[in-house]
Design a binder for these strands. Structure first.
Lengths: 121, 121
DNA sequence: TGACCACCTTACTTTTTGGTAAGTACCATA
DNA sequence: TATGGTACTTACCAAAAAGTAAGGTGGTCA
């Protein structure tokens, strides 16, 4: 595992999460919630329709969101997380926990080299 | 913890990592390595001097990189990770492990709601 | 004297990303 | 006939990020 392969691996993950809206959408769907397009619009008033649908479509293409179309009038489309999308939760949690370490005293702490990256790179 | 507070927490972490070069630089420094400016230039030939220094300064301001100036001629400046920077390793590892789950069968797996986010949001 | 090294800085251009406003299709109800 | 609700699409514009190219500051060495 070279610095490049590790970096591109993480980069590919970040690409899925990047952008101004993806995380907000994600956190609205965490916990198995299923929301309609208009629910999301209401939940995130600052987002435009274009941005909302653009982000939803990208996340669907990335495989973290499932789109369910009900053929009705008026139309009804629902969004929820895929299993894989739900599985993001602990990974994001690890990031938050890392952020919480800032300004703590880390001296004496061990950051083991058993991880895939770092240490034994 | 609302969807907004959780999302902004993660966003603040992503801001530190975002950009085309930060991760590559980071992975070159993981494992306690200390490198000079010119070492990094050589290690990452595609980066311009401006980008390299810009990213290094930002990461220094964010507190994940330490900058050590030796007052010599010719100048010598070294860069290494702070303790907090090293501590990023397991969190990034969690992201890589998540990415590796893709296309696996996740049915039956539990993603507990005990995490800071999701579940009980 | 001047060429060079290492570490930056500045000015300018291109690319990417985000944002606004308007429009579409479908049918239901008044 | 027209009004409205839902889920989009399109055209256009602004701001932010990244890239290119050049300059600049000590000093040493030939």
């Amino acid at each position: 595992m070279t610095p490049y392969s590790a970096a591109t691996g993480v980069e590919n993950v970040l690409k899925i999460l990047e952008g101004r809206w993806k995380l907000i959408i994600l956190f609205h769907l965490f916990g198995g919630k299923t929301l309609r397009f208009s629910d999301l619009e209401r939940a995130i008033p600052a987002i435009s329709q274009k941005m909302l649908i653009q982000q939803l479509r990208q996340m669907e293409a990335d495989g973290i969101i499932r789109r369910i179309v009900h053929h009705q009038v008026p139309p009804k489309v629902e969004y929820c997380l895929t299993d894989w999308g739900q599985a993001l939760c602990p990974a994001l949690d690890a990031l938050l926990k890392w952020a919480a370490l800032k300004d703590r005293d880390l001296s004496g702490m061990e950051f083991p080299a058993d991880a895939t990256i770092g240490g034994t790179v």
